[in-house]
Nucleic acid binder design. Structure first.
Lengths: 196, 196
DNA sequence: CCTACCGATCGGTAGG
DNA sequence: CCTACCGATCGGTAGG
């Protein structure tokens, strides 16, 4: 009953979360059973509850971890880049890199958040709305400073972030392209239609 | 037991499919119960089985209907447009329009196909792969005829179709933009980075 | 970390 | 279109 959170258990917990992210991505949160998760870790289902509180807690860990990382990056970008164009490029590159390097967790945060329970659901949606506003502000600033040749910042943000996020639909069947090529080519495609 | 497929029952069946599309989109296929579907239609769960065969048949209907419509449009575009640029624009516009006008069904076909059972799963994935190949061919042709200034047609297809598909993530919170504006602005953003 | 087991809910059928 | 009900599976707990 007592859940011990020692260093070793934290590692175990991290392993459970990682495997959960993989399964939630592959089969969806609802279609993934705790027995299945336990199986893939080589234990029985009840054993999991020595390390975690519940199935929904696993989802929550993944979603809030991702939300924090994206917000943290935005802090860095806002402070360390000069022009709006540089900010946009830095944001796009971070999104591409997270998508390629933390695929399972990003995918789950993008798709399975709707299975979060209140109040975490509201909190997650608030954070996301906040993130979008901050990105939008970067674009608006770029218009003001005459760096971007877009007329509608809302549509531009929608178009660009969606294009990057769309990497998830193609994950697994990318042929003949290295991660570097993909990133550079995509940035070029997207920015050349925007940067003056 | 005997499932009567008269005209009136077909209408009922269509209504069930529509409501299922809405629920599958909102809660996901696995998290949607037949009792919930029945409830939202004002009947008891067992009554549904007079009109449909199973829950998975509902998913299959939605997915194959969408796959057919996209393929059919590609037939039309290939025969009725002259240049590669015109073909690309027609494809992009069709995707945007379907996304905005048949949102629930497109969303379900895009996200919940993984819950299809064999052999429908393989068939669906084959169709999709085929569609992507045909779109890729349009881009390759545009390069050959010197109409497009892209270097990697694969990345271009990925970027453009993903951007359009990304409309789904923003569905519901589009401010101050009419559907027409959104479509034109998006086409402009995407093509100006591509068309010579 | 396991066995044994719980109440709830699932998709679907029988029979009318 | 309903009531009554099925076998299976779910997330999770008790107790060791």
């Amino acid at each position: 009953m007592a859940k011990i959170q020692s260093g070793e258990n934290s590692t175990k917990k991290e392993a459970i979360i990682q495997k959960a992210a993989f399964l939630f991505k592959t089969k969806g949160y609802s279609a993934t059973s705790m027995r299945e998760l336990a199986d893939s870790l080589g234990v029985e289902a009840p054993s999991l509850y020595n390390y975690i509180g519940s199935k929904s807690e696993l989802l929550q860990s993944i979603c809030s971890k991702m939300a924090n990382e994206f917000h943290l990056n935005l802090d860095v970008v806002e402070n360390n880049t000069a022009t709006a164009v540089a900010k946009v490029e830095a944001i796009v590159r971070f999104h591409i890199q997270k998508m390629l390097n933390n695929f399972d967790e990003v995918f789950v945060a993008n798709h399975e958040w709707k299975h979060l329970k209140e109040p975490m659901l509201s909190s997650f949606l608030n954070q996301r709305r906040n993130y979008e506003k901050r990105v939008m502000a970067v674009f608006e600033n770029g218009i003001e400073k005459n760096e971007l040749r877009i007329t509608n910042p809302y549509v531009a943000v929608l178009t660009i972030l969606s294009a990057v996020r769309g990497l998830e639909f193609w994950y697994g069947h990318k042929k003949n392209v290295t991660q570097e090529e993909l990133e550079n080519e995509m940035v070029k495609n997207l920015l050349n239609g925007i940067v003056k």
